[in-house]
Design a protein around this nucleic acid. Structure first.
Lengths: 141, 141
DNA sequence: GCAAGAATGCAACCGGGTTGCATCGTACGC
DNA sequence: GCGTACGATGCAACCCGGTTGCATTCTTGC
């Protein structure tokens, strides 16, 4: 994941690859977990919160990342991949560890089936399971 | 739903039925939708936000109401009923209308099945479907 | 090299949620 | 009845994630 690759990747999605945007993109790619605005702020010390925010907003508009609320109502961002498709009927399951406060993208779990009453139009779906992740569980025992 | 009934109801759950607590309880019972702290603030003009907040917190502790995040990450409260059981494996599906910004408790829809990877402990589950409710949909067309 | 527009940093703001603290109300003992 | 002690309440201030206005700093095309 070199800078050149990142730049090319952003450009491909229709976004000018500025230094900051590449920083944000790399941070998201390199993280094992979806990141919140605050997480990114801590990692990208050189960047202002508002700049990160604007980059994320831009990325969202260009389907470069997608966002979801974690268990605390805080937005988390993660790069769009082939696995986590970013179309209108965008649907993910996420796991939020209440111990380490990290989110996990459970993209290998199929979205459960459900049926709505007549008349409801679905825009998006947000499934979050809260609990304790394997690592934290081990630590406690 | 007389005041006496409300008082008795609260007392049964181990909460002293003060005037304010009865007000909050009645407001929640009378509302067709789950209510946020702000919703309650607007309805209960005589009460301070912090008082409402503390009443809600107390109600949560006593399983009188339960709370969930709506589509915006804002907590919504609704009275516990036999339908929406308030046990540990508390699981609801909610619908959030992005047009009128109201939440709907879809307690007649069964919780979908899903299976987690080994090692994850589930504390609670939050399923929110965002979209447009029948009323808003009608208005638009 | 320069002007025009985009990107950025700073500071301030917003809104939901939360807390410290002083006051008020009430229930109980006397 | 009366005082006291404790819980409930209101007020104000704070926290934090998110958002915006504005001035400054790049870029980029010319």
């Amino acid at each position: 994941m070199e800078t050149n690759d990142s730049a090319a990747c952003l450009e491909m999605k229709g976004v000018k690859p500025t230094a900051n945007r590449i920083l944000v993109w790399k941070a998201l790619r390199q993280s094992a977990h979806p990141m919140s605005l605050t997480d990114l702020e801590e990692v990208l010390e050189t960047m202002d919160k508002s700049s990160i925010f604007r980059v994320l907003t831009l990325f969202l508009e260009h389907d470069i990342v997608h966002a979801f609320e974690d268990g605390r109502g805080i937005l988390n961002y993660e790069p769009c991949t082939s696995k986590t498709a970013c179309n209108l009927s965008d649907a993910h399951i996420h796991f939020y560890c209440e111990s380490c406060r990290k989110s996990f993208c459970l993209d290998d779990i199929p979205l459960p089936e459900f049926h709505l009453k007549e008349g409801f139009t679905i825009h998006s779906v947000s499934f979050v399971i809260k609990g304790e992740c394997p690592q934290c569980r081990k630590k406690e025992s």
